[in-house]
Write a protein that binds this DNA or RNA. Structure first.
Lengths: 217, 217
DNA sequence: TAAAAATACTCCATAGGTATTTTAT
DNA sequence: ATAAAATACCTATGGAGTATTTTTA
């Protein structure tokens, strides 16, 4: 069964006349007969009564019509969903660092959800390296992470700017920090920031970027 | 969009690899590419990300997959409904005479409904001539009427046998009835019965028959 | 250099068309 | 005599195949 056949079936069900159906669908009468016969063969049941005035649905035909209408309704919905992109909907998979997740993100996601209620948001909280991996594996549609991150396959946009602050248990000078042992996770972005800060010997701004896969089309 | 294309789309969505998909569906790799490209053209949106390991759904592709699964589910249901005829279901349009409607039919329909709860019964109460007309016009699937009725397009089965009784306001003899004026509707079946009864000068049995359109397949 | 998709072609199955016959009113 | 469906046969579109190239890890 193909959709073309079903379309012919539905039209014939209403027209009850192969010649008229052929006209309506820009086919030729014999093709209508052939397509319907093929359907009847496939379902192994007559779908129409043949009489001198045309063709009328059998009970099985009425059942098929019922389903066919549902199928075409679904297909219309599909077309509509994919082509008329008004309000976004569906599943959006967002990633974020733990630090970001707990600060400004909740309000942002809440207002997004309110604006686009048909988007089902899912949030994955992970360290940056894993978020990037998921982006490249198409497991995430986008992520909030500490930037800037440059990559030809990713598009990034600044979202927040945060101030990084260094706390200490006792009064300390910048040049003292240089000699302390610093324990961080490997490739920790904040450590990098701290190190470049120490180099500059000044305060720097820590920007939060939003990364989303770059769509080549 | 044809169902064949959708089938290819769904398989590729899971396999994420055109070569594997071609194997699974007994196609050739280039055909998978071509069919997907045609779908993407039709929906005017990319459905897959192309990368060195294969192909992965875009967000739009995920939406389409969602709909496609629904569509195939409906189609499975359609096939099942039309081909595996276990319990009957759907709409059954029954006709009947007024006299029959009020007597034995209610119990019969009630027990039928109980046995086949998925059949939606509709009952049309009309005189025999109209019931026959509706049967011939495919407006009824069957009718209970006073028989026997012989017609090459109809199949009839005896269901009930009733006793016809003649009431009179005063004592009367059979041969007296012959001379009375008898008022009935035109072609009234009970009048015919009475007349043939008068001919036989005996009591006759009035049989109720069930007529249903004869299915030539 | 592998393993994938894309491209450029060729082929063929079958949807669709032409012409005619059959059927029932 | 008309109006419908069915049949036999033909045509051609586009789906599917073959062989090759391109791309990226």
């Amino acid at each position: 069964m193909e959709l073309k056949d079903l379309r012919i079936f539905v039209t014939l069900a209403y027209e009850e006349n192969t010649t008229k159906t052929a006209e309506v669908l820009n086919y030729v009468q014999s093709n209508i007969t052939a397509r319907i016969k093929k359907l009847e063969e496939e379902f192994q049941t007559p779908l129409f009564y043949r009489h001198s005035k045309g063709m009328t649905l059998t009970p099985k035909g009425r059942q098929l019509l019922d389903y066919a209408e549902q199928i075409f309704h679904l297909i219309d919905e599909t077309r509509h969903a994919l082509m008329d992109d008004e309000l976004p909907f569906g599943h959006l998979r967002i990633g974020t660092n733990e630090t970001t997740a707990s600060s400004k993100l909740p309000q942002l996601l809440a207002s997004y959800s309110k604006k686009y209620p048909d988007v089902e948001l899912s949030l994955r909280v992970e360290r940056t390296a894993f978020l990037l991996e998921d982006l490249f594996n198409y497991q995430l549609d986008g992520a909030f992470m500490v930037g800037p991150i440059e990559h030809p396959d990713l598009v990034s946009t600044p979202v927040f700017t945060e101030k990084l602050v260094l706390f200490s248990s006792e009064p300390i000078q910048v040049h003292d920090v240089r000699d302390k042992t610093l324990l961080t996770r490997p490739n920790d972005l904040y450590r990098e920031r701290l190190e470049s800060w120490l180099e500059d010997e000044g305060s720097i701004q820590n920007e939060l970027w939003s990364l989303t896969r770059w769509n080549p089309y």
